[in-house]
Amino acid sequence: MTDRSNDETIGITRRETLHGGAVASLALATPPAPAAAQLPAPARLPAHAREFGLQLATSINGEPVSVAIDARSSLLDVLREGLGLTGAKKGCDHGQCGACTVHLDGRRVASCLTLAAKADGREIVTIEGIADGETLHPMQQAFIDHDALQCGYCTPGQIMAAIACVKEGHASSREEIREYMSGNICRCGAYVGIVAAIEQASTKMRRA
């Protein structure tokens, strides 16, 4: 968060940090303010929202990003509506379908249930960030090879979850893949292909 106070005392000394609505990190004693703190005031946020707004400084797909957000925003809405990264999808907005899955500091999370503010200072990877130029990630290629999709709407979330599933070590058997991929609903019913794709990709990912 950018609006770090320079107060050296622990606790809140400025009433307005809470009642005036601005945001404050209370990490006042030790860590210096990050680079993002020096960025100019939110530009993209409508004036009314600034009062309850935050400046989010994060890394997305390896690029530093600083963006003004509404404190209420989900990470998913900031990615999609604020930054034009529409690969992550909204399928339920309540953590019940997995279509919004992204990696936060290397872990798969439901971005619809992640307050965007929580991503401050952390690294985000989305479906847009996993191919190497024109070369697909082995998981993307495996999804094509096994036709592990139909409409393609849940696919970005499936692929982000699948990559994490392999990296976590949860792809040792079909049964384990099925269990650890159950947070991603595919209404088209491409589960058989998804499991086969992950089996294929996990071998390639282990070799790489």
Binding site: R80, T86, G87, A88, I127, L136, Q140, F143, L149
Partner: peptide, 21 residues
């Protein structure tokens, strides 16, 4: 033959209605 639009879909580039800028 592979699904012809699978590449767009695995890249997250297939633009569904709410994705379009």
């Amino acid at each position: 033959r592979p699904r012809i639009d699978a590449r767009e879909k695995v890249l997250g580039k297939a633009q569904f209605a709410a994705d379009r800028p």
